[in-house]
């Protein structure tokens, strides 16, 4: 069941890393929200700030060198940026849980699957040991693992990559969180196993009404799982809107270039569209639109001012001067982008 209620509401979030080379603004003033029971996709290329965003919500930014230097993160109405570490420990796993790309790094190789699952529950005081065991087995069954009872005494290395990711999902779901953050959950998996995990996540979203924040660089995964999308580039949100609209009518020149760069298995194109230049390092572009040096529509203003997000339709916004109504000179260009 979807409501208009926001499980997560992030406003003006800024996260920087203070390194030998100075301040690296990994996430630079981003806004987004996740509604109850919905699947939100966050897409972008490596280094654009996807993982830093999700770690910020979890309160897991390594400090030092990282620090949230501005903005709000509201989870079920509660402000997290100022919450104590003690409170964050209660929230993590309980109200919001996270799964990562490489499940092996988040499972302890020295403990059995069962003891790790039960611990996750006992930490949050979800009943006694017996109940925890019962629920752990239920969770393993829920995520589609055969022989759940026996698997309780298996060690992580005895499982395949796909099985480990299922265990991670089981662990994330034990306390029935309202929000599940999945950071590249299928990137390390083979495509037939990826299909199983994506199906599982869709099922959990429907059955348990868990909202999912799906972070990925794979536009196919986004198209298949998400209702709304946030596109990030160099630490900023460049476009956000309903998935169907963004794929049908991408507005930001970067979004459009990205979608056209993907070789779609259904058709054979003579030549792929490709965005010139390289993905910038965060902080390397100090002024103007972060995409200007790769953008075929860039004009003077783009190199001088930071474009704000322009609302282009209900629930759809784009950070690009081509969508500034006052920018008469570029209307032709915008139509080119749209066509």
């Amino acid at each position: 069941m979807k409501t208009q209620e926001k499980v997560l509401d992030v406003k003006g979030l800024r996260v920087s890393f203070f390194t030998d080379e100075g301040e690296v603004p990994a996430v630079d003033d981003i806004d987004f929200y996740v509604r109850e029971g919905e699947v939100l996709g966050i897409v972008g290329e490596s280094g654009c700030g996807k993982s830093v965003t999700s770690l910020s919500v979890m309160g897991l930014i390594p400090n030092p060198p990282g620090k949230i230097i501005g903005g709000e993160i509201k989870l079920n109405g509660e402000e997290l940026t100022t919450a104590s570490e003690k409170r964050m420990r209660q929230i993590r796993g309980n109200e919001v849980a996270m799964i990562f790309q490489e499940p092996m790094t988040s499972l302890n190789p020295l403990f059995t699957i069962g003891s790790q699952l039960m611990d996750a529950m006992l930490i949050h005081k979800m009943g006694n040991k017996k109940q925890a065991k019962q629920r752990s087995i239920e969770m393993l069954k829920l995520v589609g693992l055969p022989r759940a009872e026996e698997m309780m005494s298996d060690y992580p290395h005895q499982l395949s990559g796909g099985m480990r990711q299922r265990v991670m999902i089981a662990m994330a779901m034990v306390c029935n969180p309202r929000l599940l953050i999945a950071d590249e959950p299928t990137t390390a998996l083979d495509v037939t196993i990826q299909a199983q995990i994506l199906k599982l996540m869709r099922d959990l979203n429907e059955k348990m009404n868990t909202a999912i924040m799906m972070i990925t660089h794979d536009l196919g995964v986004v198209a298949e799982t998400c209702e709304r999308i946030v596109v990030m580039y160099a630490g900023k949100v460049v476009e956000t809107g309903p998935a169907v609209e963004i794929f049908k009518d991408p507005q930001h020149p970067y979004t459009r270039g990205l979608i056209q760069s993907v070789p779609d298995m259904r058709y054979k194109k003579q030549r792929l569209y490709s965005i010139p230049g390289n993905v910038p390092k965060p902080g390397s572009i100090k002024q103007g639109c972060r995409f200007a040096d790769r953008c075929e529509f860039a004009f003077d203003r783009c190199r001088q001012e930071d474009p704000p997000l322009y609302k282009t339709a209900e629930g759809h916004s784009t950070r690009c001067f081509l969508f500034d109504e006052k920018e008469e000179t570029v209307h032709d260009n915008r139509n080119t982008v749209k066509s």
């Binding site: 395949s160 796909g162 099985m163 083979d190 495509v191 037939t192 196993i193 990826q194 299909a195 199983q196 994506l198 199906k199 794979d218 536009l219 196919g220 995964v221 986004v222 198209a223 298949e224 998400c226 998935a243 169907v244 794929f247 049908k248 979608i259 993907v262 779609d264 298995m265 259904r266």
Partner: peptide, 22 residues
């Protein structure tokens, strides 16, 4: 082929989800 995610939210595919591991 049917497991490959297609970058088109309106595409209805006939997906065959295989059971089990390699």
């Amino acid at each position: 082929l049917s497991a490959v995610p297609i970058p088109d939210p309106l595409y209805e595919k006939d997906s065959i989800v295989l059971e089990g591991d390699i």
